[in-house]
Nucleic acid binder design. Structure first.
Lengths: 220, 220, 220, 220
DNA sequence: GATGAATGAGTCTTCATTCAT
DNA sequence: TATGAATGAAGACTCATTCAT
């Protein structure tokens, strides 16, 4: 009873409807608890059609993961302008990230929770995407170090670990800000930026990283 | 065939065997994919006995979550000495955290991945524990701010968000360092501490937070 | 992708293509395991067309059985020349039979295995054909008895039973010689002829039935 | 509601009930058309129990085939007394064979029709049994040839083919005499024996193989 | 003459759960 | 304390079959 039962649509459209339903169901129930029956009903089609187009529950899940991973990476990429200084880029990336995940919580649940909880094949899919983002962040950190006119004494492993921590913090905040009413993507991004850039030490000494003024951007 | 089939044990002991088996199974297979059959066999008892003692799959899972949550909080608490300065306390807490999670990966998987992926009742259980930790961290941050002789202008929500980010980063690093061979709990803790305390900005300017010498502690 | 996709053919031709595909599929997979999807694809047409022309899976199967039964009976009839002596007729009939079944194993599988395995309606179809052959053989035996200048004391039931045994042996040999590489239709026919005509007793005493020389015939 | 619903039986008994039901169902409906539901109901148990004991439809079928194959071979073996002359042994073997198959038509259907119609794994099972019988018959033919004081010029392949034909004829007659009311196993055996031993040629000349008098044996 | 879109019904299989002992 | 025997309910997947064009 999810979608109105519109008959006879071209395959591509129906497929998207099914994926929408699947992401929602997987996101809310989890991979195993989601039943193909529920997905089909939510998509407004019969189960056989789902199988005809998407093959199997596993394939359907994989397709969902890929679609959402792609969408997330694109959203972040689109938010970042490479000509800006590194800290600004990081800031933009975080904002885009929080905005996207909060606009699309089921997709984020699929990526962040469900996919990692159900075996290599799926987890690998997400790991690939995550690595894209981590390496993007890693790059930013390196650039920032260069901009700081310091020889980058940070060893690679350290940088990787830092990037990992930053991304992890972001992921965690995304869930938190989704779950905590009244928290905007903008705020989450700002806090994280402060945390990451200035560190707790500086923060407490009253020397935070200064966020740029709100300007015209999407307000999350 | 996990446990040797010893007959007639006191209830408390049997229960722990069952919980061990359950944590291992839930941690590796996930809540839904874990079957009561497998758990019973791994525990070396018959299924009806599992039901007799633990009531139902849900109850069993909840009990696992509680046990693991409790163990984790205890481990962290035990690592922290309240008379130390705040940064040292944070450092000790992180070390204890990474040490415990890496020693007990199935338990951590249950808490971090499985419990959050299967609906409110379970997620709430973890949230409760998480809040204990977050509030502990929040307290530390507040203390640190006071120690820094600055009036702590940081509003509550900001501090909560910071604590959340820090914990999130830690959680994420726990998974990462479990999965990345050659990474010790100690290293993870050090990097995160640097990150959190000094911030990327300072790090890159060559002013990291200085970790205390190895000393006598558990080497994780 | 079996047949090349040629569009707009006259109905009769399309029907034969479909029947070809169906016989092949039924012969190899069996009635139940054969899917209309596979048949349609192998025939190079869409499923609705199969239904338009052949009505239903049952009808399609029945039509296959009839076609193959007819073809087999015709092949045997065409091989037999009624003016020859009875043993020669039998010999020719066997040769034609083995030649046809080995040239058309899927058709033979449909008749011999599949049709008999799926309930009266289909089995009856084959039984009808089989009776044609059995009665042909029965006639031959009667003629032979007359030629032997003996009053044919053989009661009808006995003759029927003999014919049945002979046909059964032939059917069985057909499958065997199809499955045993290096066995020709000719050899199978010769052995069976010996067996039938001379009997094991005579065979072992060195008095076989003498097969005619190879001559010009199809060599099977 | 086939069997009366008797509760709580030891596993071995229940398993035989299930196999009985399965042989009957497979024998009458065929492998694919037989549903596990029907088998379970006929056995008077729930489906999960069937799976618990017999694992899967395939395993169940295989187990049926093996049980029936074993039973048939045993029946034939038990009927044959190795100290008798070869033709007598053949005669006894045929009688035992027809008696067993007519007493157990579903088992025979499973072996003769169903198992061969559903892919190598199953067919192989039957082939193994068949080869036991064929080789038994082959041995008899060889012995008979020796007894006939003739050097056995029959080449191996020829003998194999003969044995195959004989067994094929027997198999076919089994089905026929099952389907033709008023035909006894004894008659079928007698006719086939005549056919095989004396050959049509001799038969028609009035020189049949003489069957031993009825005596005490099972009358089939 | 031909097909892309769609489904009701049914199959195998598994699981959490409970008696009866 | 402990278990062998047993099942209701549900889930993934497939198939023969039909519209609407």
């Amino acid at each position: 009873m999810g979608a109105v039962k519109t008959k006879r649509m071209p395959r591509a459209v129906r497929e998207q409807q099914m994926l929408d339903a699947a992401v929602r169901t997987f996101g809310q129930r989890g991979y195993m608890a989601a039943s193909m029956d529920e997905i089909a009903e939510l998509a407004g089609v019969s189960k056989p059609l789902v199988y005809l187009y998407l093959n199997s529950k596993e394939d359907l899940f994989t397709t969902c993961i890929r679609r959402e991973a792609h969408a997330l990476v694109e959203a972040v990429r689109a938010g970042v302008h490479p000509e800006l200084p590194a800290d600004r880029q990081l800031w933009e990336g975080l904002r885009a990230f929080f905005a996207h995940t909060s606009r699309n919580p089921d997709g984020w649940s699929v990526l962040h929770l469900q996919a990692r909880t159900h075996g290599e094949p799926f987890a690998a899919e997400v790991t690939a995407m995550r690595e894209e983002i981590v390496s993007l962040v890693t790059r930013l950190i390196a650039v920032a170090a260069r901009e700081a006119h310091r020889d980058p004494d940070l060893p690679d492993r350290e940088v990787a670990c830092l990037a990992e921590a930053l991304v992890g913090a972001a992921e965690s905040l995304a869930a938190w800000s989704n779950a905590t009413p009244g928290t905007t993507a903008r705020q989450a991004a700002a806090t994280l930026m402060n945390f990451a850039w200035a560190g707790l030490g500086n923060l407490m000494e009253g020397r935070p990283w200064s966020a740029p003024e709100p300007s015209h951007e999407v307000s999350g």
